[in-house]
């Protein structure tokens, strides 16, 4: 039960925190159409997070709601990967972060459709439609950014160099991942990693982007140990429920 709950939270928190970052970007886009497109992705991800959190609250059976899980958990109880909490430094950072996550989500949820857990396989089927589109969009943007002007290539390569060290955490197996894989609920992350790497290589090749030579990796999010950014995200996100614990919104 505990492992299953934590597995659910890992999935939900990636979607929740990334959607939060994207929602910060509303009205900051490079042109109006892109602002709308970015918001669509944010909305899809909040939807995924909401479904999984509600289900988590249900199997948890303590009378909590999905909102309680989003708004009343402490930083150490969030299990998203470090990559999704990285800030919106510029459009290149946003798109690199998005592409790396979309590609992970795409292969991960594709595998998850085979889960023995009916809820997870259903949410995987449903989310996959949205994620397929997200991946198409971020892949094309990465190519435009990498293969357009020199300035854009430089900025995007800089974003890759900065974010790459957070990219492998998606595939780092923890105890929960291993237990869930064994019981046929979770997916084989090695499988996902190999598909993900192929996709990344393909798009990076077309975008004239290089994987950094220094392959040093940082992890911790999946154990509840985050970067300094996370505290600010939660302070802002949880402000009203923390300040007015009795209020219903």
């Amino acid at each position: 039960m505990e492992a299953q709950k934590k597995y659910y939270l890992q999935l939900a928190d990636n979607a929740l925190i990334l959607s939060h970052r994207l929602s910060e970007y509303s009205s900051h886009g490079p042109f109006l159409e892109e602002d709308l497109a970015n918001t669509n992705v944010a909305l899809d991800l909040i939807g995924i997070a909401e479904s999984i959190l509600e289900q988590t609250a249900k199997i948890d059976g303590k009378g909590l709601t999905g909102d309680d899980l989003a708004y009343r958990r402490g930083e150490h109880e969030f299990y998203n990967c470090l990559l999704v909490e990285q800030p919106n430094t510029d459009f290149a950072f946003i798109m690199v972060r998005q592409f790396l996550t979309d590609a992970f989500h795409f292969y991960f949820y594709s595998e998850l459709t085979k889960s023995k857990d009916k809820f997870l396989s259903a949410i995987a089927f449903k989310s996959l439609k949205e994620i397929t589109y997200h991946l198409r969009r971020s892949s094309e943007w990465l190519i435009r950014l990498g293969d357009g002007t020199q300035l854009a290539n430089d900025k995007t390569q800089h974003a890759v160099n900065t974010l790459w060290k957070y990219s492998n955490e998606f595939f780092t197996e923890n105890d929960v991942d291993i237990e869930m894989k064994k019981s046929g609920i979770g997916v084989d992350l090695k499988e996902v990693k190999s598909l993900w790497s192929q996709k990344v290589n393909e798009i990076f090749f077309m975008a004239h982007l290089k994987i950094p030579e220094n392959d040093f990796q940082l992890t911790g999010g999946k154990q509840g140990n985050h970067t300094e950014y996370m505290g600010y995200i939660l302070t802002e996100m949880q402000f009203l429920p923390s300040k007015y614990p009795d209020a219903k919104w």
């Binding site: 939060h20 929602s23 159409e33 909305l43 909102d67 009203l240 209020a247 919104w249």
Partner: peptide, 28 residues
């Protein structure tokens, strides 16, 4: 937009985001 990141529930956050997005669409 000043309140999206502080919306107090997932429902209200979705609605607010969608509404602001509509405004962008209407501008467009």
């Amino acid at each position: 937009g000043n309140w999206i990141t502080r919306a107090p529930s997932l429902r209200s956050k979705k609605i607010l985001l969608a509404k602001i997005q509509d405004e962008g669409g209407h501008g467009l």
